[in-house]
Computed example of a mutant assay.
Amino acid sequence: MTNHKRRQIYITEFDLDRLEDLIEKHRAKTSRDTRNLDELEQELGKAEVVSPESIPPDVITMNSRVRLEDADSGHATVYTLVFPADADVEKGKISILAPIGTAMIGYRVGDKITWDVPGGQKNLAVKEILYQPESAGDYHL
């Protein structure tokens, strides 16, 4: 994952606790996801941690459903950012441990996401948050 400009990302205390547990459990049982775990840990390390009630409503949090637009093709896709056990690519449920999932966490509407893919780089724009658990009052999803 590559970010051309530094931006402040936000994460809820609840998501931070669950993601730190996820990282710890995955590190203990496998080395397969080491790069993704390292990148997620880096993202979390630079995040501003806030209470679920004070997260801005335009921030991608865990279980948020968002519309992203490919900057090159203009094609829009809806994704839900989920924990690995809930991932289902066919249903648009992207794991936080997938490169795009790690890249999405903490971004806001209007932000550009750039990450490395086998063929080079992919550029997406965060167009809309269709559902964010915190703004819907679902603080423990």
Rank of each mutant, 00 (worst) to 15 (best):
M1Q: 03
T2G: 04
T2K: 01
N3F: 15
H4V: 05
R6D: 12
I11K: 06
L16W: 08
L16C: 15
D17G: 14
E20R: 06
E24H: 09
H26E: 07
T30L: 10
S31N: 14
R32T: 03
R35N: 09
N36R: 15
L37I: 10
D38R: 01
D38G: 01
E41W: 04
G45L: 01
K46E: 12
V49Y: 04
V50H: 11
P52T: 00
S54T: 10
I55R: 14
P56A: 07
D58P: 12
D58R: 01
D58K: 02
V59M: 07
R65W: 07
A71Q: 07
A71N: 06
D72K: 04
D72M: 08
S73W: 02
S73V: 02
G74R: 03
H75Q: 12
A76D: 07
Y79N: 08
L81G: 04
P84Q: 01
A87T: 00
V89W: 01
E90G: 14
S95R: 00
I96Q: 00
A98K: 07
P99W: 04
M104R: 10
Y107Q: 14
G110N: 01
G110T: 02
D111T: 01
D111E: 06
T114D: 02
T114P: 10
V117I: 09
P118T: 01
G120C: 06
K122G: 03
N123S: 15
L124Q: 15
V126G: 10
E128S: 01
Y131V: 10
Y131T: 06
Y131S: 15
E134V: 04
H140D: 11
H140K: 14
H140Y: 12
L141D: 02
